[in-house]
Structures are given as C-alpha cells and as structure tokens.
C-alpha cells in the first residue's frame, strides 16, 4: 500500500485558530481539510486541519508566526 496518502493533523487552541489557519492555506492554495479532532488524538472538542505529509513543510512555513499551533501529529489509521 505504498501509494496510500499519509496525513498529519494540526491541532489548535480553539476553532477560531483553525479557521484562521484555514483562511491562510486557502489563500496560499495549499491543500488541507478541516475535520473534527479524532477522539484518539485529543479529548478536546472542536476541529483540526488534516494535511498531507508531503505538503507539511510548505504548510508549516505558511502558518509560521501567523497562527499559534498546539501540535502536529500523524493521523494513524484506526
């Protein structure tokens, strides 16, 4: 299953931070998806951004100094 895409999730303090990041990524045309925080990752309510691991460096550079990020975690298959 080498061709299967692997994902990371970016976790934020609150939904408003995730939305701020989403706007920046939309403007920069960097692929991402806003998803509910998977329960095995955090018990906190709210949403996070799912990104492709390949695009991580570009995405992190775009968000740097603009949005506070809590954590970036691998999204493992359940």
């Amino acid at each position: 299953m080498k061709d299967k895409k692997s994902y990371d999730v970016i976790l934020f303090k609150a939904v408003s931070y995730a939305l701020k990041a989403e706007k920046i990524l939309k403007n920069e045309k960097l692929p991402h998806k806003l998803i509910p925080v998977p329960k095995h990752i955090s018990s906190d309510c709210g949403v996070c951004l799912r990104i492709q691991v390949d695009a991580r460096d570009k995405i992190m550079a775009a968000l740097e100094d603009k949005v506070d990020i809590e954590q970036v975690r691998a999204l493992e298959d359940k």
Binding site: A14, V15, S16, K20, V37, C45, G46
Partner: peptide, 21 residues
Amino acid sequence: PGRSGHRLSVEAARVIYDARE
C-alpha cells in the same frame, strides 16, 4: 460555534471569524 466538529458548528464559527476579520 466552536463547540462541536460538525459542519453547521464550523459554519457558525466561520460567521464569527468573518466578523472578527
């Protein structure tokens, strides 16, 4: 807004974010 992860909750949070922006 900001309480749940479903689409309408996110949409409500977007309304608020747009206002702040």
